[in-house]
Design a binder for these strands. Structure first.
Lengths: 117, 117
DNA sequence: CAGTATCCTCCGCGATACTG
DNA sequence: CAGTATCGCGGAGGATACTG
């Protein structure tokens, strides 16, 4: 129904054997992934935009993050045949279905350190 | 207010510099962590119980997972001076505050593969 | 029962430099 | 602008064996 991954990444496959929450972590865990989704929930972004908003991510890492999210059916990559090159990243239906989840995790992470000293 | 970590693990510290969602991932990301929390939301568990319910986790890994969750203020470890030894793991207030999050992630992960082939 | 001790492998992620 | 190419390190997580 929603957008579906063509091939399944290893970590995701293995997670399915364990528990649904492990599937979520296999897809969304790892640095920069949820931050990227969070920005894409806001609006479509270009590669450089994402890089600047994320702050300290390297191009290589951001590329892999976006490729993973694309493989997992979260992100769609659109290339425009222009000069200079323009590539836009947006969310699939499945990606947009993360709206609530991202909201909760953002709120929980935001409240987290306040309980510490 | 809720239970607070005494010391802060490196990944969590670094995540704070980036985005609240990265904090959540720093605490909850990684294999077995959310599954463990999910079972502990159900009720208190002993070490061996958790190991059996998780299925294929090694003792070494489960120990580290539980120590991390303890350091991060999610889990409480209670040792009973008995023979044979008995150790029980339960959630802190902060850990219990993950109820909703775990529910969402479990539901999302459960629906995830159905959209694929 | 509830872990430790050792060892080892994979790969996530960063640093740096280069390109169509 | 939007990446790729190379290199390297640290740490997550498994395999196996042992212990208070």
């Amino acid at each position: 129904m929603t957008t579906a991954p063509a091939t399944m990444r290893g970590p995701v496959q293995r997670a399915i054997e364990v528990c649904p929450v492990e599937v979520s972590i296999a897809v969304l865990g790892g640095a920069w992934k949820l931050s990227t989704v969070k920005y894409l929930l806001e609006r479509t972004h270009r590669f450089g935009e994402l890089q600047r908003r994320l702050g300290t991510v390297t191009p290589r890492t951001l590329t892999r993050v976006l490729r993973d999210l694309e493989t997992d059916g979260i992100v769609v990559r659109t290339v425009y045949a222009e000069v200079p090159p323009r590539v836009e990243y947006s969310l699939t239906d499945l990606g947009r279905s993360l709206d609530q989840v991202v909201g909760w995790l953002n709120a929980w992470g935001d409240a987290y350190p306040s309980s510490a000293g």
